[in-house]
Design a protein around this nucleic acid. Sequence first.
DNA 1: TGACAATATTCGCATATCGTAATATTCTTA
DNA 2: TAAGAATATTACGATATGCGAATATTGTCA
Lengths: 93, 93
Amino acid sequence: MKEQNIDIEEYTAIFKALAHPTRLTIAYNLMLKPECNVSKMCECLNIPQPTVSQHLSILKNAKVIVGHRNGNQTCYKVENLKVMRILKQIVSN
Amino acid sequence: MKEQNIDIEEYTAIFKALAHPTRLTIAYNLMLKPECNVSKMCECLNIPQPTVSQHLSILKNAKVIVGHRNGNQTCYKVENLKVMRILKQIVSN
DNA sequence: TGACAATATTCGCATATCGTAATATTCTTA
DNA sequence: TAAGAATATTACGATATGCGAATATTGTCA
């Protein structure tokens, strides 16, 4: 019998990162829009900046999002194709 | 601006349930096969029965799987369409 | 009913996660 | 270089999660 080559560890890490309302909201919105910086997220979510940065850090470690600095601000976006496929599934159902 | 009607809480619960290697493995395999009872899972996973039952309970509470008794054993399967769409995405990528 | 198989639940403890607060770092610009 | 804006990190107490061990429940069948 042929083994399905799904990487359980990888997907577990992704799901773990998405398993929080704030982080799922961030990831979901980042998938819809091109990218976003931190202070705009804080404003939209109405959540303190350190908390948002912590969540961003978790999403980043799980390879759900990537960030790049532009001057003194950091823009984040979703690039991981596996993550994008998952997030697109939950849109508009 | 129109609100996207995605239920963050619902998907958070689903992702939380799937965010564990054992549970993701169980859910993934249940999506591939028609259904499975507990002792067969214990055997395949090589994990003690109480631990498997605990994970099944978590998956059940998150509406990821449903179980029905057949005599003195319980068969579980994935019926939730949202969950199936997510799990199908992670197959064969 | 008694014994056994299959599954579920409870308990206790170790570890992980969450959120707030405080502080540190990085970058820009005067 | 000093000040301020934007972001990141650390510390810590409260709560949640994971797992093994023990036990309870449910169903079958002699």
